[in-house]
Design a protein around this nucleic acid. Structure first.
Lengths: 136, 136
DNA sequence: TCTTGACTTTGAAGTTACTTCAAGGTTGAT
DNA sequence: ATCAACCTTGAAGTAACTTCAAAGTCAAGA
């Protein structure tokens, strides 16, 4: 049996996050001691660690809840899991593409200024003020 | 003079966003008519468009406020502008690297399952449950 | 035993950048 | 006159937490 801080250390997240997951019902209510402290067993901590790993992969709380539900039904087919992973991968890839476009624009802006002149002559602000910007 | 919806259309953002920017003081309070409607001139709309372009580049509201302040001082050197752009570019690049790591992990997970078996045998959930995960 | 510091509890509010909603007033065209 | 489409405000909702305040608990050392 572990206190919330011990569980947090083992699972690799703050105690406040564990309380939060309980509050939003991502995790079941923890067993309580007579002092009203939450106590966790190894199995609880493993589930929590599973949640943290999925969150680190960028899954939303709702998606993690789906994953947990799927993991709790060992006999059903795993298409659902595959779909969740694929969906997440697609959204990550899309976000990467957006950010790459962004980075390219920022680099372009950067090349419009050598830092050695007053703002009045700054190509960056000129570009940002240019109404033709949105065409680019 | 334009109403808020007209200004919004010209600047390319919802009217609610303009009100929001005013509320958080990113933009000055708009001039009001006797009907209490907000009215905008071309210069106001240009400033709003500038804000929208910077936001589209991923600058936070605070950073946009900095950009506006800098743009309002045409005689000071433009190092500050350069720094803001560089900082933003670095954070975008960092985020891209994080997401690429994420995508690689998701692809790795994907390869652990061919979708043709029950969850009990699913390599994805096995990997997510594996305590050695965090080493990877 | 007392104290001290580190833990625990709760509910509420703060974070970011908006969007949505409710309830009501204004405008312009028919 | 009436109708749609606009405008106003303040408040609440969104995601996923984090931080805070106020108060109770516990373990160890003097």
């Amino acid at each position: 049996m572990f206190t919330i801080a011990q569980a947090a250390r083992r699972a690799g997240c703050p105690a406040s996050t564990i309380r939060y997951y309980e509050r939003v019902r991502l995790l079941p209510s923890a067993r309580r001691g007579t002092n009203d402290y939450r106590y966790y067993e190894v199995a609880d901590i493993e589930r929590l660690a599973f949640v943290n790993r999925a969150r680190q992969l960028g899954f939303s709380i709702d998606a993690v809840a789906d994953l947990l539900r799927l993991a709790d039904h060992p006999h059903s087919p795993c298409d659902g899991v595959d779909t969740l992973i694929a969906t997440q991968l697609h959204s990550v890839e899309k976000r990467i593409r957006q950010l790459q476009t962004l980075a390219a624009r920022l680099r372009q802006l950067q090349s419009a200024c050598d830092g050695e002149h007053p703002i009045r002559e700054c190509g960056i602000l000129a570009a940002l003020s240019d109404t033709r910007w949105n065409e680019a």
